[in-house]
């Protein structure tokens, strides 16, 4: 019973949705990108939307209420954000893959309990807790401390980007950051865990070990919760979609989706007790860190995954 969902539905809000759709419909699942707190759909429109579309995936990005071009909502809660995501996902023509970044990953985790996604990708997930607060206070006390008392959370460039990103671009991005609702920010500290996902979607977790917002240990913990190991991109900042080497993570996500052995509606875990042989075979080295392969210890996987995929190395 979800009495509250019924008796107190979330108040509707106008939402900004940016999209890039391939010219030819290739039957691939649509991607819905969910930006983290402070970011709007623009963060994905810079690079990732177009890139996903050029590889044949219809790509959409939503601005959570109060962010980007969506309606202002200073009193927004985490639940309202999850509502925004589910509403947009259900409006897409087909079952979508949800891609959440930062605190947007937490929003996606909550949305997964309300919408049977085709799959989910958590990019540098901020699932809250005191560890994240500690890290943020250490790196950026002046920007973080007001947020604890309900003020705006100000992120600085050192937290978000690696030094490879040109200064001017980084300043431009930081200048576009907005702020999340006060109550949603507090939810990062004391919100109960998201309900388990409906429809058992496969979940990929990726991030950077050099992220100054999300400690590597958090990445591993979140990934373990979804029965996998994180996919790591060393040398990148928290905003993987805006940083200098933005192509590597999005290519890894799309590779994973192309290999993902999930039929429409049918999910890996439901097919039977044993994963099919072609599931474990033939995965590219860089995208093997998902699924429920309990036989291999997580640490081994992590070490193997730290190497960037051969394809991206060749490009540099």
């Amino acid at each position: 019973m979800r009495g509250r969902e019924w008796s107190r539905p979330v108040r509707p809000a106008r939402r900004e949705v940016l999209s890039a759709v391939p010219e030819l419909e290739e039957g691939r699942p649509p991607l819905l990108f969910v930006p983290g707190f402070g970011h709007g759909a623009w963060a994905f429109a810079e690079h990732w939307l177009g890139h996903a579309a050029s590889r044949g995936f219809p790509a959409y990005a939503v601005s959570l209420r109060g962010h980007g071009g969506s309606e202002p909502a200073p009193e927004a809660t985490l639940r309202a954000y999850a509502h925004d995501v589910v509403q947009v996902a259900a409006s897409l023509p087909r079952q979508a893959v949800l891609v959440g970044h930062g605190a947007g990953a937490l929003v996606v985790a909550h949305a997964l309990a309300r919408y049977p996604a085709r799959g989910a990708v958590l990019v540098a997930p901020v699932f809250g807790g005191w560890g994240v607060l500690g890290a943020a206070l250490r790196r950026n006390p002046a920007g973080t401390l007001p947020a604890v008392f309900g003020g705006p959370l100000r992120l600085n460039r050192g937290q978000l980007f690696s030094s490879e990103l040109p200064d001017e671009e980084a300043r431009r991005y930081v200048g576009r950051l907005g702020r999340a609702g006060r109550r949603a920010q507090w939810a990062l500290l004391g919100e109960p865990e998201a309900e388990s996902a409906v429809g058992a979607p496969p979940v990929l977790v990726l991030g950077s070990p050099d992220d100054r917002v999300v400690p590597a240990s958090t990445l591993t913990r979140v990934a373990r919760r979804y029965g996998s190991a994180p996919l790591l991109f060393p040398g990148m900042g928290h905003d993987l979609m805006l940083d200098a080497r933005w192509e590597e993570p999005i290519d890894a996500i799309l590779d994973w989706l192309e290999k993902e052995p999930v039929g429409p509606g049918g999910h890996v875990r439901a097919v039977g007790g044993q994963p099919p042989a072609w599931w474990t075979a033939g995965l590219p080295a860089g995208v093997a860190g998902w699924g429920t392969r309990a036989s291999e210890p997580v640490s081994v996987l992590v070490r193997r995954l730290i190497r960037p995929p051969p394809s991206s190395r060749a490009r540099r």
Partner: peptide, 15 residues
Amino acid sequence: SKPFTQFPDFPMPDS
């Protein structure tokens, strides 16, 4: 009303 009628995992549009 809408929240009572929709499928729990596929909400009707806010509009």
